[in-house]
């Protein structure tokens, strides 16, 4: 990770309006390979809107999301053709939803959930697919003997880990995460954090994590953006923003956390 690398993702002036209401306005930043960016803010601050605009789930009203593609170098994914963007979504990008059931196929076995993504990128050999699925279930600490069970029989934490396995099996370079630890028991959160951090380091992933949990960003994110009313009010190194927040809203956010 040398200083002269070009950005993996370059977000320029992204805006999204819901009628007269601002979803997010004029957000710009660069994300470099191996970096983890956290986005925090209260509910309704526009962080999920921004994430969905970047990941291609929502069409922004203005702005560019330039991704450094393997084949053709930097390309604006907003103006890219739908099939191209979908291919990106299956290969270099991954999206971890807050509710695992939004990111999983609940009627398909755990192994099938992981294998499906492999098949979408052209893998056809049943033995290879099952082998990789088993390997990934192991990495996210799901027992191999659960491979043929459906996610409906899994706990919330297991479903979330399965969703992560399904997303990472194709070796993406960029992972979008929407509240990945939200709604989980704290002991399960810790396990997931440990897992995510290891995967980020070992696979050299870049990630964008939307959360309202400041402890999560402190442990996972290199950089942090604070959003309020659709705008980025402060950004910088994670520990700088948390230890010495400059904007009134960031100060309020940091000082409102209950000490354990």
């Amino acid at each position: 990770m040398s200083a002269d690398l070009s950005p993996l993702l370059s977000v320029k002036g992204i805006s999204k309006y819901y009628g007269a209401h601002i979803g997010c306005a004029d957000v710009s930043f660069d994300l470099y390979p191996g970096e983890v960016m956290g986005i925090v803010g209260e509910s309704g601050s526009g962080k999920s809107t921004l994430l969905n605009c970047m990941a291609g789930h929502l069409a922004p009203d203005a702005g560019e999301v330039v991704f450094d593609t393997r084949a053709d170098g930097p390309k604006d994914t907003v103006t890219m053709s739908e099939p191209e963007r979908r291919m990106l979504g299956r290969t270099d990008w991954a999206f971890v939803h807050q509710h695992a059931r939004d990111g999983l196929r609940m009627g398909v076995s755990a192994g099938g959930n992981v294998g499906e993504r492999l098949m979408a990128v052209g893998e056809r050999h049943y033995g290879d697919i099952r082998g990789k699925a088993t390997d990934w279930l192991g990495r996210v600490e799901i027992d191999a003997d659960r491979i043929d069970d459906r996610p409906t029989t899994f706990s919330g934490g297991m479903q979330q880990r399965l969703q992560i396995a399904r997303n990472l099996v194709t070796g993406p370079r960029l992972v979008f995460m929407d509240e990945p630890t939200g709604g989980l028991d704290v002991s399960v959160q810790a396990r997931l954090l440990d897992l995510l951090r290891g995967l980020v380091r070992d696979m050299g992933l870049s990630a964008i994590i939307v959360t309202h949990d400041l402890a999560v960003v402190r442990l996972l994110a290199d950089r942090l953006m604070v959003m309020k009313s659709g705008r980025v009010v402060e950004s910088g190194l994670t520990d700088q923003v948390l230890d010495d927040p400059q904007h009134a809203y960031s100060q309020l956010l940091v000082s409102s956390v209950l000490q354990v």
């Binding site: 910088g236 190194l237 520990d239 700088q240 230890d243 010495d244 400059q246």
Partner: peptide, 9 residues
């Protein structure tokens, strides 16, 4: 010390 480390601006 924190200014030198950069977690204080």
């Amino acid at each position: 010390m924190r200014m030198i480390y950069g977690n204080y601006l």
